[in-house]
Design a protein around this nucleic acid. Structure first.
Lengths: 177, 177
DNA sequence: CGCCGAGTTGAACTGAATCAAGAAACGTGG
DNA sequence: CCACGTTTCTTGATTCAGTTCAACTCGGCG
């Protein structure tokens, strides 16, 4: 089992809970604190924030994707992000404070925690590099590699804002794939 | 002492070493493995990689900034990044494998390690958001807030590639600051 | 039916890239 | 301390990818 994220439900079974959400439901609302990590079992989530009236997708989480209000979790402040279910979803939930306690009691799992963190970090590095010098088309193709079939599940507008381009541009890019 | 990075030299004193480099010297060369983390005591470093003949700055590290070949450290592969001294610099060096051993022996310092990781992560999130929807000018102003006085120390071309814009554009942006 | 959100298409506009010269600044050796 | 070549920075003209604004299509769904 290569993907560390898949090991989470079992490894942290005693502090994890499973919730279900309906499409469109908010798991967390911007402006509030949130100390929960969400790991998608089935379905799809996204985190997003507002920039000048615009809804910008920060992150997608499909099956065994992880999402959270990272700013709130790490800084303890209220969060700029909201988290929304894009489909009916079942979601593992993990309280960050409980996670820290659990890791203190089971130091052997620090390694898994660190692997997960590194995975998230590398993901972000790759995305950042893509945003630095890829064209709209190249960003879209890159996304399709990382999230195959995402276009069938997520609306064009959400994908466009995630890629930092307009919906119109993405529509045109896609037409002559 | 709020900044966790400043606690590193003391906390990891027994596994850290101090090296000096001359301006222009490479601390690490792309294509090789690198398991060393570099923490700037004095001077300035940058990591960079090549995209289609172009030299792109991935990261700057000024005083108490941290830089490493993250891909190599985390995946154990050879690295796409090189690391270069932008000024004569004195640099704390920390071997990642030794760090893991040290953390096993001193689990009380896992917390510091995690704080550092989170700091790096949040930094990246912020940068990513900036790249997603800020104009060239806004990115530059944003950079100046995060690295005051960097323009006096780092060449225009390095800054431009870091911001994902051309040197010419940055020159124009700066002229009418 | 008619509305509504999501996607498409078109035309005009614009910020930034590209290409091409020059002008400063810099270091090195005479 | 100056002369030279190299690198860094600036400036201009042109082009282009992507935005903006606006209208229109399509597929549900009440």
């Amino acid at each position: 089992m290569q993907n560390p994220l898949r090991q989470i439900p079992e490894a942290f079974a005693d502090i994890i809970s499973l919730q279900t959400y309906r499409k469109g439901q908010l798991l967390h609302r911007a402006g509030q604190r949130c100390h929960t990590l969400f790991l998608v079992k089935t379905g799809a989530l996204r985190s997003f924030y507002l920039v000048e009236e615009r809804d910008v997708t920060a992150h997608f989480a499909l099956e065994y994707g992880l999402v959270g209000a990272v700013d709130s979790i790490m800084k303890g402040t209220s969060s700029r992000y909201s988290i929304e279910a894009l489909e009916d979803s079942t979601v593992y939930e993990l309280n960050y404070a409980e996670l820290e306690g659990h890791l203190n009691r089971h130091p052997g799992q620090e390694r898994l925690a660190r692997q997960v963190t590194q995975l998230l970090y590398l993901d972000l590095v790759e995305r950042l590099e893509g945003m630095t010098f890829l064209s709209a088309r190249a960003r879209y193709e890159h996304l399709l590699e990382r999230y195959p079939g995402i276009t069938q599940r997520v609306s064009l507008g959400h994908i466009a804002s995630y890629l930092g381009i307009t919906q119109e541009t993405l529509s045109r890019v896609r037409r002559q794939g």
